[in-house]
Amino acid sequence: MSKEIMNKEKKKMNPIIWFLIAIVIPVIIAISLTAVAFAIAGVNVLDWAKNTGNNIPVVNTLITTEEEAEEAKDEEKIQTEITSKDNEIESLTNELANLEGIIDQLEQEILKLENKQDNSSDQEESSNAESNMVKDMSSSLREMDNKQAARIVEQLEDSTAVSLLKQLSNKDRGAILEAMEAERAAELAGLFIDSDN
């Protein structure tokens, strides 16, 4: 029985082997020899095959030309830039929200100070409380990053900003004014000088 099974398997394999030996291998050898002959003759076979394959409807999806590869690289580069810009926008938005929160907090403290000043019958107590708050706020500004402190001072009313600047040391005041926009820094410096006179 086993001999019959082996004979059947040999008969089944024979047509497959015959097909490979008689058709596939000679075709591969002929294509290879033709490609070598054209290459020796100076024809760029690879580019010709890409261009020809690119015109065939089903095959063109499998072949990538140099232009398509460059377009893919450009698209990937643009996508990377968009992602980095989106991340930058998100971080700036978060920073803006934080600064607006600090400004709101400072404005609330200013309103409290103004309300205390209006309601207080004793101007001396009011000025002491205000100066204490201004001292507290100026010490808070000293602890902050110069750029962030400058952004906050830029948004304050002139009188409040000058009061805060008076409480700062020359070094801290200079660093904060340096971090501000030039016009606003010049305006506050002028008010600061006028308030000393």
Rank of each mutant, 00 (worst) to 15 (best):
E143Y: 01
T65K: 10
I78V: 15
E90Y: 14
S32I: 14
L177T: 06
Q148K: 08
M180N: 03
Q79A: 14
E71K: 15
S126F: 03
K50C: 04
S84Y: 15
N44Y: 09
P26T: 03
L164Y: 00
M13R: 12
S32W: 10
T52Y: 02
L164P: 03
A175Q: 14
L111D: 11
T160R: 10
E81D: 13
N7D: 05
L191D: 07
R151W: 02
D136T: 05
S126R: 07
N51A: 11
A49P: 11
E181H: 06
Q79K: 15
E187V: 09
P15Y: 01
D136H: 00
K171A: 02
V162P: 00
I63Q: 05
A49E: 07
D158Q: 13
E9C: 08
N132R: 00
M6L: 11
N170E: 08
L165N: 00
S159E: 09
L46Y: 10
I89K: 13
E130R: 01
A179M: 02
K112S: 07
L46Q: 08
I40K: 13
I31T: 09
I102S: 11
A129R: 06
E68G: 12
E95K: 12
Q148C: 00
A35I: 06
E88P: 11
K50G: 02
E66F: 11
V153C: 01
P26W: 05
